[in-house]
Amino acid sequence: MEVDKGKGEAEETRKVAEADRDTVTLKSSDGKLFEVSKEAAARLSTVLAGMIAGGSIDDNGTDLKQIGSEALENVVDYCNKHANSIPSAALISSSISFNTAPFKEPEEWERKFVDRLSHDALFDLVEAANFLGMERLLDVTCHKISEMMKGKSPDQIREVFNIKNDYTKEELEEIRQELAWAFYDD
């Protein structure tokens, strides 16, 4: 404990000296450390941006207890790849549309990025993106999952997402009748 405290103080001084470091260190739930560029983190994640602005970044590894190391690795990977990719023209075009937040199709590298992930890793990544407030990553991952959900029946969705069915039989029948067009294939 004493050692830790002393180390903490040393960190304090180092922090002042290196206030303009250009990376942040993130610590996963199982204690692994990851480095990501400060600029990319602030740009892609609202939560990390808030932390950087609020000065609550710990140079020794900011604890992200909710995120496992695999998911965090993917997040960092995504941040690095995003920093390297050139923003597409769609992102800067201004035009009237009906969306408050227009959905942009995942770009090629983003598609590849989520395609190589396993089912579990993808779910972890969605949760991590959600937790960190990373809109774009959430877009890309949710898009992938919703594509997987396409054509599935409510029962199958319940199974995949582990949702408990709390409808009564009558209610379910009512929904099926009212929204028959959504259940043609069943």
Binding site: P154, I157, I163, A182
Partner: peptide, 12 residues
């Protein structure tokens, strides 16, 4: 929209 409705039909 179908996926959305089916999601909505999973639970209350």
């Amino acid at each position: 929209p179908t996926t959305l409705v089916r999601c909505a039909a999973t639970c209350r």
